[in-house]
């Protein structure tokens, strides 16, 4: 078992090294593609980290993503870059704790609606602050970060996310999370501190999402609330994680990569029909693969084996 784990880690390390070397021989467009793809892989995996085991469908992705982007917009002139990322992570953490404490007792559709509202609430708060206090809405980000630099940061964040996600699966917390996902009442009767565990996971997931926003923001040069808090990001993350299977380590990855490439191909070749096709894809995923690709493949295999 340990030998297998070591081998797995070695392979993962090699893949990571190969991906990191990509910008050295691929063109700028490949780097752009990889930035978008890695960004969504991290978002979907971080989303799955919390929502997979607990089955809380969160639409707050863009709230944290936007917080990250905006923090960079506010502090990029005054603080050194690593410190900006740290501040972004801390703000994301603080918001996640406040939000988590007040809402993780909600369940089901109430939680979905709340998280959707949260993104809009934060956007309106930022707008209100900018209008009434600073008197400007747009913020400029002039950071000397190259696309390669952004790509490498995202890759490192992806590696850290996977490592965390993989690590937590083999601890008592991981087991506890599975119990919570299956039946909260049973979990609480087993003596699991449900709320604290959910809160911790929600916070970690939120911090990772915040960092994705912070890392990607320098690519846009200029941000305003409507740019940073674009709700499409929440929906795309959700559908990617669902396609792959949110409750598995590699599920969101397997959802994010094909969907991202599909969207890219669609927007390059069918720019005028994109929204229609996107809607059809969403419907198809929900109807045909409700538990995700991985689960579908597994059940197919199991059926085949039984015969």
């Amino acid at each position: 078992m340990t030998a297998r784990t070591l081998l797995g880690l070695l392979v993962a390390g090699l893949v990571l090294a190969a991906l990191a070397a990509l910008p050295l021989f691929a063109g700028p467009y490949a780097v752009t593609l990889m930035i978008g793809m890695t960004g969504y892989v991290v978002l979907a995996t971080a989303w799955g980290l919390f929502s997979g085991p607990t089955r809380y469908v969160s639409l707050a992705t863009v709230a944290f993503f936007g917080i990250g982007a905006y923090t960079v917009g506010v502090f990029s002139e005054t603080l050194p870059y690593p410190l900006v990322l740290l501040v972004a992570a801390l703000i994301g953490l603080a918001v996640a704790l406040v939000v988590g404490l007040s809402t993780l007792r909600l369940a089901g559709v109430y939680f979905v609606i709340f998280t959707f509202g949260l993104a809009e609430l934060i956007r309106q708060l930022v707008t209100w602050y900018e209008v009434n206090v600073t008197g400007t809405l747009g913020r400029y980000i002039f950071l000397p970060v190259t696309p390669e630099g952004i790509y490498w940061q995202l890759l490192a964040l992806a590696a850290a996310t996977f490592l965390f996600s993989w690590g937590i699966g083999r601890t008592r917390w991981g087991l506890a999370l599975k119990v919570i996902g299956d039946d909260e009442v049973v979990a609480s009767h087993c003596g699991i501190d449900i709320t604290r565990l959910k809160l911790a996971l929600f916070a970690v997931s939120a911090v990772i999402i915040t960092l994705v926003g912070a890392i990607q923001a320098p690519r846009w040069t200029y941000i305003e609330p409507s740019i940073a808090f674009n709700p499409t990001i929440s929906f795309l993350t959700l559908i990617m994680a669902l396609l792959g299977g949110a409750d598995r380590l590699w599920g969101p990855l397997l959802g994010a990569i094909p969907l991202f490439l599909l969207f890219e191909w669609l927007s390059a070749n069918f720019p005028n029909h994109y929204p229609i096709i996107l809607g059809l894809v969403f419907i198809a995923i929900v109807f045909l693969l409700p538990k995700g690709v991985l689960a579908a493949v597994e059940s197919r295999l199991r059926k085949g084996g039984a015969r």
Partner: peptide
Amino acid sequence: YDDRSASEELVRAVER
């Protein structure tokens, strides 16, 4: 191309 009113899409489309 349609940037779908998203900065990230626009950046990618211009690069493309």
